[in-house]
C-alpha cells in the first residue's frame, strides 16, 4: 500500500540572487510522521520552512500537500489547506490580548473568517480559543496584552496559535529557543502528547528536544540534505559528527 505523503518536496530550490539558500531538497513526510530538521546555523532550515509555508516561494522544484500541488500558492492558502507553523522569533500581535491572538488563529481557517460582526463570549471560536489557552497553560492571562508576556509565555502562545487552526501538518521552527532548561521537558511532553495523526516537522538545535520527539531526522548543510536517518543512528553518523564537531576531528 503506498500512502500519499502529507508533504512531498521534490528538488526544491530557493535562491536569493547568487546565494543558494536551499538547493535540490527532496524528501517525503508521511501522514503522522514526526520529522526533525537539523543542521548548523546557515544550513537553510528556516529558509526551507519559509519555502514550504509560502513566505519565500521556491525558485525551483515542487511541493505537494497530501497530493495537491501547493508550490505557487500564497501563504494564507497553504494555511487554509492545513499547514500550521511557528516562527524562530515569536511573531505575535503585541497590541492585542492573548485571547484575541488565539481567536484570530482559530478563525483564520474558517470559511466565514471575513466578518464585521463582533463575536460573543459564547461564540464557538471564542470557546476554542479559551480551550487552547487552557491547553497551553496560559488561560490565566487571557486578558493580558501580548507585549506584557514573558519570553516563555510568548513561546507557549506561539505554539498555541499554530495548533489553534487544527493543522494537518504542524511546522515548528525552534520551539525551544530561549526557553529555560526547566521549561524544555514541558515542551517535549507537549510535543509527545500531540495527536498521532498530526504530521510534525520540527527545526531544533537542542538534540534533547529534537531526537526524542522525532521518528526520522533530516540533516542539512549549505542548503542541501546530507543525511536522513532515524534518531538512534543520527548521533553516531560520521557525516553528522563531522558537521557538528568539524571535519578534521
Amino acid at each position: 500500500m503506498s500512502a500519499v505523503p502529507a508533504l512531498r518536496l521534490s528538488h526544491v530550490c530557493r535562491q536569493f540572487g547568487a546565494l543558494r539558500a536551499v538547493h535540490d531538497v527532496t524528501f517525503d513526510v508521511m501522514p503522522g510522521e514526526r520529522r526533525a530538521v537539523l543542521g548548523p546555523n546557515g544550513a537553510g532550515k528556516t529558509t526551507l520552512f519559509n519555502t514550504i509555508c509560502g513566505d519565500f516561494p521556491p525558485t525551483g522544484g515542487s511541493i505537494t500537500l497530501f497530493g495537491d500541488d501547493i508550490t505557487t500558492l500564497k501563504p494564507h492558502h497553504r494555511t487554509r489547506r492545513g499547514i500550521g507553523r511557528t516562527y524562530q522569533t515569536s511573531l505575535l500581535f503585541n497590541g492585542l490580548t492573548v485571547l484575541d491572538n488565539l481567536y484570530l488563529a482559530v478563525r483564520g481557517v474558517r470559511p466565514n473568517r471575513f466578518s464585521f460582526r463582533a463575536p460573543k463570549a459564547t461564540d464557538p471560536d471564542m470557546i476554542a480559543a479559551r480551550t487552547m489557552a487552557d491547553r497551553m497553560r496560559i488561560a490565566h492571562m487571557l486578558a493580558t496584552q501580548v507585549d506584557q508576556l514573558s519570553h516563555g509565555q510568548r513561546r507557549q502562545l506561539e505554539v498555541g496559535m499554530a495548533l489553534a487552526s487544527g493543522p494537518k501538518v504542524l511546522m515548528l521552527d525552534e520551539p525551544a529557543a530561549g526557553l529555560s532548561p526547566g521549561d524544555r521537558p514541558e515542551l517535549l511532553k507537549l510535543l509527545k502528547d500531540l495527536p498521532r495523526d498530526l504530521t510534525l516537522v520540527l527545526i531544533e538545535h537542542d538534540m534533547d528536544v529534537a531526537l526524542p520527539a522525532a521518528d526520522i531526522v533530516t540533516v542539512m548543510k549549505d542548503g542541501e540534505v546530507v543525511v536522513e536517518a532515524t534518531p538512534d543512528k543520527i548521533e553516531s553518523d560520521p557525516v553528522v559528527q563531522a558537521i557538528y564537531l568539524g571535519g578534521g576531528h
Binding site: 500564497k74 511573531l91 497590541g95 473568517r113 466578518s115 464585521f116 463575536p119
Partner: peptide, 29 residues
C-alpha cells in the same frame, strides 16, 4: 469601536502588528 472588536477589526490590528503572521494564520492581508 464596535468594528475593531469584530474579526475584521482584529485582523486589521494584526496587520498593524505583524502582517506576515496574519497571512500565516489563513487571512488574506
Amino acid at each position: 469601536l464596535y468594528l475593531v472588536r469584530s474579526p475584521f477589526g482584529l485582523v486589521l490590528q494584526g496587520i498593524r502588528d505583524n502582517p506576515r503572521r496574519v497571512s500565516a494564520l489563513g487571512y488574506n492581508v
